[in-house]
Each structure stands twice: as structure tokens, then as C-alpha cells.
Amino acid sequence: MSVLIFVELDNGAVKKTSLEAVAYGAEVAKLTGTTATVLALGKADVSSLAQTGAFGATKVLHAADEKLTHENSLAYADILAQAVQQENSKVVIISKSGLGDAVAARASAKLKAGIVSGVTELPVVNGSFTVKRSIYTGKAFSNVEVKSDIKILVVKKNAIEVVESSGTAAVENFGPTLRDSDFQASVGAVEKASSELSLTEADIIVSGGRGMKGPENWQPLLDFAKALGAATGCSKPVSDLDWRPHHEHIGQTGIKVAPNLYIACGISGAIQHLAGVNGSKYIVVINKDPEAPFFKAADYGIVGDVFDVLPKLTKAVEDLK
């Protein structure tokens, strides 16, 4: 009956967003009077898996087969459904991401489980089961009742405050049946900027827009991001102009982010860009145009030239150390 949490791994360690999902799952387990079990697939660092106990998991099912190390939503969904059946789970928790949605979708069809994606709060359980989710790309919310016996919640970043304790979870080997049909695709080149912080995982993001005036001017922004330990993003025009790579594009049709701190440099704040950042806890806007619409959505603002302001900020951050 345990709540089952599917976690994503990065080089064998449980991703931070997945640890949040574990904490969320543990709270749901409390609400429904059961325990939280983690499902981890592929090559993993066992101590990192056990550490999910500090976020409230009691047990980890680990399918260590080497074939599962490479991200494969078809196989993952298959195995998730097997784990749900073994554990007789009624609630499945997955962190929102491209992979998370893909796994949730296929598992939903296998289990005839109602799926709610973009969950922003803990469910209300009192006879019925209702959760709040983000819709219209962060412009609104919807309270949704899930009526199926098995429920899958795909949870957004910052849905709950995570409290870390000192517990450890028991890691068990899990031997699911693998289907050949899930491994038909042949994977070619993988381009991954492994040294960069991932935008969806980052606590702080520094982002640049057309106000940066050209790709050759990015250094002050990169220096500031480095000083803060922040990931870097950009607006759609910037990625359309190839000033920055497409995977940095934040907005309605790009990546949606929800960091603790989002710092926009030379971005006017078109509604399509705001749609990608409105999950951020704090927003800082630096723009030389005092009329830039982004200031209306910001917590802190500086009207000024980014090339004048950014070096000052970088120095101020370095002075803190």
C-alpha cells in the first residue's frame, strides 16, 4: 500500500528535484497512513539511495540492470507499473520533467491511473482525493479530484518545504521483467553539457535577454552566475538569434523554471517569458528601461545598464565570501 516515488538519477546520485518528490511522497504517506517507497533504476550509488531516508523514504527498490542506466521512459514506465503491483501502491509520485511526464503517461495507461501533472501542493484527502495544480503555464491553478483507484501525481519544484532528517532507507534489489520491445531504439550521439548546472535543478538562475546586445557580451553575466553558483538561461529572442544554445531558452515554449532566485538581465519581460519563470520564489530585474513590464513581476529591481551593474554585483557577491 506504500506511496511509490519514482526518482531520477544523475551519475548514480538521486537528483535534487527527485529528493523533493521523496519528501512530498513521505508527506502523502503520512496523510494516507502508509510508508514511502522509492524506485530507482540503473547504475546507482547505494549510499545516495539510502540517503532518501533523510527525506522520509522507508525503503528503496533498486533495479540495477545496466540496461536501465540510460534514460528510457518506455522501460521505466513498464518497471514502475510492476513495482506498483508488487507494492500494491495507490499513489505514485514523480518529479515534473520531460522524463517524469513520459514515465507517468505510459504508467497511467498501463495502470488506468488518473494522472495530475504540475502539482503545487499536498493533496487534501478526506474521502475524496484532491490536488492543486498549475495550469495556463503558471497563470492559474486548478483543484482536481482524482477518482481512480491508483493515482499518479507529477509534482512541480517547490511544492513543499523540504525538511531533511538523519534517517536512512533500506535498499532492496528489485528484479523486474524487462521487455525487448522497450529497447528497440538505437541511441546515437548524446550532447550534454555535463559541467553546467541544469536549469530545472538550479536554486539560482541568471538569465540574459536582447539587452545583452550580442553573444560576445555574455562574460559579465557568466562571471556573476559563477560567483553565485547559478545556472544561466536566456530569453527566446536570444536563443532564436543563436546567441545562446537552445537548451538555455526559458519561457512559454522553452524550459519552465522554478528557482529560489531568478535574475533577469536585459529582458523586458514579455508575457511568454514570464510564463516560464512565474514559479520562481524571488525575481530580480535589471533593465535600463524603467517601463520594462518585467518590473511588475519582480521583487527587486535595478534600473540601469547591465554592463555597469553586473560587475558591481559580482564583486559584492565575492566580497561576501
Binding site: G114, K139, A140, N143, D299, Y300
Partner: peptide
């Protein structure tokens, strides 16, 4: 399997400092 019950809008943002 799921049905929306109610919609809501985000709380208005405070003034920008």
C-alpha cells in the same frame, strides 16, 4: 479519471523594491 473542481489565480505580487 480526474475532474477539475475549481480554478484560481495566483496571489497578486507585492510592489517591486
Amino acid at each position: 479519471l480526474t475532474s477539475p473542481e475549481k480554478y484560481s489565480l495566483p496571489a497578486p505580487k507585492g510592489a517591486c523594491k
